[in-house]
Design a protein around this nucleic acid. Structure first.
Lengths: 217, 217
DNA sequence: CTGCATTTTGACCAACTAGTCAAGTTTTTG
DNA sequence: CAAAAACTTGACTAGTTGGTCAAAATGCAG
């Protein structure tokens, strides 16, 4: 949807200039910061323009509507955010695959908390901009992985567990550290910033979930 | 903070009339609905007044500022929301106590999803209105329960687990079903509404977490 | 270096929104 | 039942915000 700047011709090519590339990036970075902190309604175009170091009309030259910036950001983010799930290998060792997945998600939660918050905010408010994406891309992917997990359970490689709830639990737990960062900090204080905190978190989460789904006799 | 309507005298008593009681309730109910769906900035006073069936100036007669409604709601909600954690019995059986806690949280997530979303939204945006509450009330409570859990671990009644991360995991997982309801529905479809879904959820969550922290030899 | 396309911006507007106010209506109370 | 208190509202204001526009500045191909 996000139409770029005006072009010489009205045909397909959509060539982007050097300046366009730079400025669109500046805008998107600034917008991610703002949207993830204040939400869509709580963010003004002026704020984004300021942060991006340009005038409001100039920003609107690249993204004619505020909504365009928001949707572009979500689209950009979602693919990347879901990649690790797609990477779960049906032929790998179940516990090992899930360990890798959880570890990666915790890393992402630490390195891109704004992306997590942007997404959380959108879903929290009913996902008006991405409900299509959820049903057309997310659901099939999860369904696919659920089949694999269910097979693993059938083969006795995992304790009997509902695959969907397991995936929700992994999402909820890992993203909690990004989305509820303020609360985590209020409770754990200075520990949060310290080096090694992520490893400690990963250790605790992995220990509970993996032991929770390890096959028992 | 939330000052009630004008009173006869300017002394302490703060007596509330029948009408005040009814109307404040109408306003707060309408506001919870709106704030939890659209967030603070996304909700207008007119919206709340409409939903509550009164004029905007009349609403402002009861809550002179939009902020007042919001803060009152958060305060009202938080105490109730935290009660189950406070109820964990240091002398009870660890697994049983945690089972009860998790079950209760999942029930609340289903019966009061708006409250969960209101809170999630506030924390997601940096908890500007309740950071005091977090450090002055939530932290001490969690610290207190962490000591208990740590003792349980020491006594060999639970597998070695960091109490804070365990509590975060319980919060994250249970509240996920309220906060990310749209996503859960997009993926699990019609199952979500069906009777027994909550029991199925509770079963899955309990199974993973409790087995994850059950003492191992 | 010249002419055209691209980029940038100050000034502006219309819609929206939190909050005010004075004048009315209803409820309570002595 | 009359006066006082409590409640209700239409009309309004001031500030904010998304978006427009025409004109100026800059970049770039030949």
């Amino acid at each position: 949807m996000a139409k770029a700047a005006k072009q010489k011709t009205n045909s397909a090519p959509e060539k982007t200039t050097r300046i366009q590339e730079i400025n669109r990036r500046l805008i998107l970075d600034a917008a991610l910061d703002a949207f993830s902190t204040y939400g869509f309604r709580g963010t003004t175009i002026d704020q984004i323009a300021d942060k991006a170091g340009m005038s409001k009309p100039n920003l609107l030259y690249y993204f004619p509507r505020k909504q365009n910036i928001y949707v572009t950001l979500l689209e950009e983010t979602l693919a990347e955010w879901l990649a690790p799930l797609a990477d779960i290998d049906p032929e790998g060792d179940p516990i090992e695959q899930l360990r890798k997945y959880i570890t990666l998600k915790i890393k992402m939660s630490e390195s891109h908390p704004e992306a997590s918050r942007l997404f959380a905010n959108e879903v929290l408010h009913g996902a008006p901009a991405i409900s299509d994406f959820l049903s057309k891309h997310l659901k099939p992917l999860v369904d696919e992985k659920a089949v694999i997990i269910r097979r693993w359970v059938g083969e006795g490689k995992l304790a009997p567990v509902d695959p969907y709830h397991l995936i929700f639990m992994i999402w909820a737990t890992t993203q909690h550290y990004a989305d509820f960062d303020v609360q985590v900090r209020a409770i754990m204080g200075s520990q949060v910033g310290r080096p090694g905190f992520r490893e400690q978190t990963a250790q605790a989460v992995l220990s509970i979930i993996l032991n929770g789904i390890r096959p028992r006799d």
